[in-house]
Write a protein that binds this DNA or RNA. Sequence first.
DNA 1: CGACTTATCTCTGCCTTGAAGATAAATATC
DNA 2: GATATTTATCTTCAAGGCAGAGATAAGTCG
Lengths: 402, 402
Amino acid sequence: MRSAQLSDVRQQNYSTIMRELMRSGPTARTDLASAIGMSTGSVTRLTGALARAGLVKEAAEPAPRGMGRPKVPVAIDESTYGVIGVHFGLHRINTCLIDLRGQLVAELPATERTTNLKPLLRGAARSVRKMIDSHGLTVLGVGASTGGWVDSSSGQVHTQPVLGWQEAPLAEALHDLVGLPVLVDSQVRALALAEHWFGAAAGVDNFIHLFVGNVVGAGFVFNGSPYRGAHSAAGGLDHLPVTGRSGQTCVCGSRRCFAMVAGDLETARRARAAGLITDDQEVYDVFALAVAGNPQARRLLQDRAGVVGTATATLIELLDPELVVIGGGVSAPVDHVAVVRDAAQDRLAASRGGDATARILASAFGPHALGIAAGAIMLDAVYRSPEAFVPALTATASDPGH
Amino acid sequence: MRSAQLSDVRQQNYSTIMRELMRSGPTARTDLASAIGMSTGSVTRLTGALARAGLVKEAAEPAPRGMGRPKVPVAIDESTYGVIGVHFGLHRINTCLIDLRGQLVAELPATERTTNLKPLLRGAARSVRKMIDSHGLTVLGVGASTGGWVDSSSGQVHTQPVLGWQEAPLAEALHDLVGLPVLVDSQVRALALAEHWFGAAAGVDNFIHLFVGNVVGAGFVFNGSPYRGAHSAAGGLDHLPVTGRSGQTCVCGSRRCFAMVAGDLETARRARAAGLITDDQEVYDVFALAVAGNPQARRLLQDRAGVVGTATATLIELLDPELVVIGGGVSAPVDHVAVVRDAAQDRLAASRGGDATARILASAFGPHALGIAAGAIMLDAVYRSPEAFVPALTATASDPGH
DNA sequence: CGACTTATCTCTGCCTTGAAGATAAATATC
DNA sequence: GATATTTATCTTCAAGGCAGAGATAAGTCG
């Protein structure tokens, strides 16, 4: 619990203006003032400071309509600053530079044999340095994501089973190498933030991102902020019991754990059992068959989507989100979100009669957008506290300018 | 999204001081300043205004120790204001007056034959009026709770299955009758707020209140604020699938719905099947047997506690709370929370190895505290925005006083 | 070309905080 | 017992923030 100060007001008002501009696009100062309930004088002063800092700009005015002085829209300036996202996957590190609107400016995918933290970090830092200032954007910071249990407040990766990391000080180590602010979070929460800022959940304050792939997990945004739990461990779905189907026996002893029923491994296992793929093929080959039109493969994936639907219904009943975004193999490359939606609605209709349901949408990003999502971690921070990450803003704040 | 103002700063600082005093008990101004990061001058000014308004008072100073001027502790003044809570149950309306520390000042239980909204409201309003100002406390407002789907933002009860209400404008109707601010919320969320302010979860910012009784449901407090979901429907557990045991077939078609396996009805059914109680007896009679030491009854309730434990594990994995508070028939009159704890830890240990678990505690309130919990709805609002509910505070704010 | 309309900018007043100094009330020391 | 010391609390003052009123700018309409 911390007491509030005057500077908090200014900080929050900067943030409110930036978020409103992100949400609504170019907006005249007058409209901005009435949208956020601020005096026009304050809007002028604050947008002035934001413009001098390079965060907003006056957009091209549309054909002036009606009487009076024409509106001059103010918009996010995406040409000054950028943020970098780094995603650490198995044998794959994806580094992206995105602008303040979330648009991809540059990408630098890399494959790595090792899973050791040190060499991976050195490689990532090299990619980051290569990107800094080489695309005309001043980089404000780096967001890093990976799977497993990631603590965003301490910057530590407690456990990352796929890469075998334990208590890895990811944020600190990367900061030492690149000299920029570094924020870390889990892959699923990064995806949720990306959806929140410039994806399917743009402007939605209560939603769940449900990721189903080689790992399963949920990312929560509650009341407009990411919810991470008391130990940054929120979002675990591995052992969520599902109804209607059972899979292999889980380490916990149950045969109805969501991960064991709907995860990629089980899908691949069932495809093998059905003779669809060979022993050394993986779930991606099932996707390929489905894309090619193989009916058995399609049925298998639809089946899985049905299970995801019942789990979605459980989450909707429990957490009452406005929206559930489905990511991972259920939404791409073959989009089975309609199956998820039907299965979820079926279950909810039986119990609730259709009241208080949530929209269910496919992720706005393809499977290769994990780097962009990592950047969203940093972008989120910039929009929440602009002064903390844009030095030029505090410098020009009190300057009356011209 | 609304912009911030200077008055928001003052409001929040009032709130921060009140909450800190509630959390830590009587505190000297200096200690208060360092605890919340405020200058001592501001603490003096704000506590002065709070004291003139009757919200805080200078407490009796303890034996002065050490050198220097002795500290003068400031404490919540519980002798000026109170809030009233009204809980609408089946055939039972419980009206309570509590002071600012949550202590019960007066209680007025009433039994009612009807379940119709109008006569129940008239009866409740009579009880409320009887309490107002008759105990030396100025009543700041009324909190009302009931089961079912209650929308706290609109004040509507969408559906209340036990009483048969549909779209009942509870807040507005009660406000018209008593002329005080009225806030409503669901019974489970009210219990969660009570635990948060003066119960087992005092000072805990991320926790879940899990209620298992004739109805089941969860109340969430995330990041220090109640989370109600997009349509005020969060907390539904009825159809949460549970592992290890199945019950009667639910309306949704599954036999593993939490409500059907762990609810009071199933417990009573199993007790009947075992010959423990007769057809016209209920779950309370099973409790009575267990209290009397009947081993079969105890085993039955322990069994149910085990199921609650697995559901608790699911919630902990999904939402990573710091604490889970167990309320309803599992914690009273026979406390089986230890069984819940063991069952939950068992399941979590298999999957997580004991990391990031949550404490599990019994509710601090007996089964008859629903009225107090309803009052907590109003108390929460007063602590969050004192100026909105205490007119004397705004009146004396700028007064330099003496 | 002048009147009108609307958007934006400038200026003033009020409010709130933080910091420093003044005051108060106890103990420690001679 | 008188004085110094220590710590808590109160008072004063300057800086910084927003709202609202008025001034200015940049169009359209007749």
